[in-house]
């Protein structure tokens, strides 16, 4: 670009001001002190699908006494970024992973303040304060929803329709097949943005899966399902469908990828072949015609 005109300079200045204003509005306030009550809210929203406090194992361990079993630094790192702790080969994390059917704890995208609040909540549960006025609220009851689902006798055929999207999810959630595959559903399988779900039932266990379907506590799914959760009957139907799908063989994910890419390549080849038929219809330029006739 040539020398900047005054108008361009003004524009540049305006842009910088715009960027700064945007940054200022979105800057977060400084984190406040750890708050056990907020920690409890975070626990119910993000952790209760896989963990209880004093009510036994679900997908993950019972967290009663967790602050006495593990030190604060480890807990903070683990809750904040479990995948990094695992990747670093931490012995406790590795052992837990093996113990809990190789289902890694997913990163919940919690802020530092939320992690501190959670730890404050765990500490308050493990060592109740002497002052009775400060006793924490009763423990959350994560299983109420799951118990209802287990009591319902879901329809596995309807569950399959919900999975493929043939029957829309009542609250507007995206059909499972967009991101997940189940062997035997569809000619070249379901989606691969999320993990394969063919043997989800074995992996999570009936109770664990029922609890998980209620909250879908996975970061990518939260973006879609936090505001539009599965209804109780949808959860029951899907649970029945997952139980049926569990009997299928191993998924053929690499084959499906090859088929999708191969069919796509064939399509593009057809387009290129089509272009061959249009090539003769391209009129030559005057110079080319003259050259062809030997007059140039």
């Amino acid at each position: 670009m040539k020398k900047k005109t005054p108008a361009q300079r003004l524009l540049l200045l305006g842009l910088i001001a715009f960027l700064l204003a945007g940054t200022a509005t979105l800057a977060q306030a400084a984190p406040s002190r750890a708050d056990a009550a907020n920690g409890e809210a975070v626990f119910s929203a993000r952790c209760a699908a896989c963990h209880t406090i004093g009510k036994g194992k679900l997908v993950g361990p019972d967290l009663l006494g967790i602050t006495t079993r593990r030190d604060t630094a480890w807990l903070t790192a683990w809750i904040k970024e479990p995948e990094k702790v695992l990747a670093a080969g931490d012995p406790i994390a590795t052992q837990l992973l093996a113990e809990y059917n190789n289902i890694p704890m997913s990163n919940q995208g919690l802020s530092d303040a939320e992690v501190a609040d959670l730890l404050a909540y765990f500490t308050s549960v493990d060592s109740p304060p002497a002052d009775p006025a400060q006793t924490v609220a009763p423990l959350p009851e994560p299983l109420t929803g799951a118990a209802k689902i287990l009591a319902l006798n879901g329809d596995s055929d309807y569950g399959e329709k919900l999975f493929t999207g043939e029957a829309p999810l009542l609250n507007g959630g995206t059909p499972c097949m967009a991101c997940h595959s189940i062997e035997g559903v569809g000619l070249i399988g379901g989606g691969t943005l999320g993990p394969d779900q063919t043997h989800l039932y074995t992996k999570y266990g009936r109770e664990g899966l029922a609890a998980t379907l209620g909250t879908l506590p996975f970061p990518t799914m939260q973006g879609i399902f936090a505001a539009q959760p599965l209804t109780i009957s949808e959860q029951a139907d899907l649970l029945a469908f997952f139980a049926r799908a569990d009997k299928q063989g191993q998924p053929r994910t690499p084959l499906n990828l090859a088929l999708a890419l191969g069919a796509g390549s064939a399509f593009s080849l057809a387009c290129l072949l089509g272009m061959f038929f249009f090539w003769p219809r391209q009129r030559m330029s005057l110079a080319q015609r003259l050259r062809k006739n030997g007059k140039l």
């Binding site: 959630g173 995206t174 097949m177 967009a178 691969t192 990518t220 973006g223 796509g264």
Partner: peptide
């Protein structure tokens, strides 16, 4: 579109 299938559906959700 090939490795993270099926984008046409998950696009509408995300």
């Amino acid at each position: 579109s090939s490795y993270y299938r099926w984008g046409s559906t998950w696009f509408t959700g995300i």
